[in-house]
């Protein structure tokens, strides 16, 4: 419990910083008062329609990626499981791109997150089926590579076939993710799926704790393996689908955050879930602040920063696992 307060404080501070950083150069008090007063000034427009949705999405998506990374790692009992690396985010991006290019997203707004959810579901099902709790790290990574490669190739294909001249240059957005120029519409679009997914994953805590003793022991403790698997699969698909639909595929958050926090929660997967949600929110807020400070004019993609932090850690984890399981 000593972890809650610092993490909540960190998220709160980063959230405030995210609201206060931007090219418009609005002062701290000016900005905060514009956020809470109901007038039509340009400052209010910037705070409420540009910065607030951006900060909210960073919290929602960061928390979602953190918690789904922790849940997948707990269920697969493998520290390498992460939605971005094993192709769930990539498959979600494919779903989103298909919804946009077929016009479904214009005809019916919810088609975008739902198509991304369907894509994510496909990806997570393939990976879980191939590398279930008894699978080795090797099968997990191989399945993940195959799903990622296929989803990435199909996403590029769809975007290259698009009659829209901008589509092809957006491959990098779908593979790296960005929160630039999002609006409250995107927040409302993603929120319901995030809440459902978050609820499903939050309820897996006891099951995941029991799983650390082995599947048989967990079943003896009254945990239904089928239901646990279903909750992890659907919860992850909801969160990753909705997040990717509005912000593109952002990798490594679900890898780095649980890894850093695991020792601090005594290695218990159940407690790691909420800690990773807070940690993920903090990490994505920090990354989104960094892209605005480092290259304010260029819309540097979030995935670039998360990968710069996450990829070395990933290599470190593989080295650590090398002697034991792979």
């Amino acid at each position: 419990m000593r972890l809650v307060l610092p993490l909540v404080l960190l998220v709160f501070v980063l959230f405030a910083a995210s609201l206060l950083i931007g090219p418009a150069g609005i002062g701290v008090w000016e900005g905060l008062s514009a956020l809470f007063t109901m007038d039509e000034s340009p400052q209010a427009l910037v705070m409420r329609e540009i910065r607030l949705p951006r900060a909210l999405l960073a919290v929602m998506i960061g928390a979602g990626l953190g918690v789904s990374g922790a849940a997948m790692q707990g269920y697969l009992r493998n520290p390498l499981a992460e939605p971005g690396l094993i192709g769930v985010s990539g498959s979600a991006a494919l779903g989103a791109v298909i919804a946009i290019q077929t016009g479904a997203a214009t005809a019916f707004a919810l088609a975008l997150p739902m198509a991304a959810l369907a894509g994510a579901l496909g990806g997570v099902l393939v990976v879980v089926a191939l590398a279930g709790p008894r699978g080795t790290s090797l099968t997990l990574i191989l399945a993940g590579i195959a799903v990622s490669a296929m989803a990435g190739a199909l996403t590029s294909l769809v975007l290259n076939l698009s009659p829209n001249p901008f589509a092809a240059s957006e491959i990098v957005f779908w593979m790296m993710g960005s929160l630039a120029d999002r609006s409250m519409t995107h927040v409302w679009l993603a929120l319901p799926f995030m809440v459902i997914g978050g609820g499903l994953l939050a309820a897996t805590g006891r099951g995941l704790d029991a799983m650390t003793l082995g599947e048989d022991a967990a079943e003896a403790m009254g945990i239904s393996m089928g239901r646990l698997r279903l909750a992890v699969v659907i919860g992850t698909a909801c969160i990753v689908g909705a997040g990717t639909a509005v912000a593109g595929a952002i990798g490594f958050v679900g890898l780095v955050v649980p890894h850093v926090l695991r020792p601090l929660v005594g290695g218990r997967p159940g407690r790691l879930l909420w800690a990773s949600a807070l940690g993920g929110a903090a990490m994505l807020l920090a990354a989104d602040i960094a892209v605005r400070i480092v290259l304010p004019e260029r819309d540097l993609k979030l995935g670039v920063l998360t990968a710069l932090v996450g990829a070395p850690l990933f290599l470190h984890l593989i080295l650590k696992l090398r002697g034991t399981r792979i």
């Binding site: 090219p23 946009i100 016009g103 009659p163 829209n164 901008f166 589509a167 240059s169 957006e170």
Partner: peptide, 25 residues
């Protein structure tokens, strides 16, 4: 940046016509 557009508060914005097929851009 969109923020700057909001800050300069023009009386109207003349936008580009859309191309077929969607895009995030």
């Amino acid at each position: 940046p969109l923020e700057m557009l909001a800050m300069i508060a023009p009386e109207t914005v003349i936008a580009a016509r859309r191309y077929p097929g969607g895009s995030r851009s």
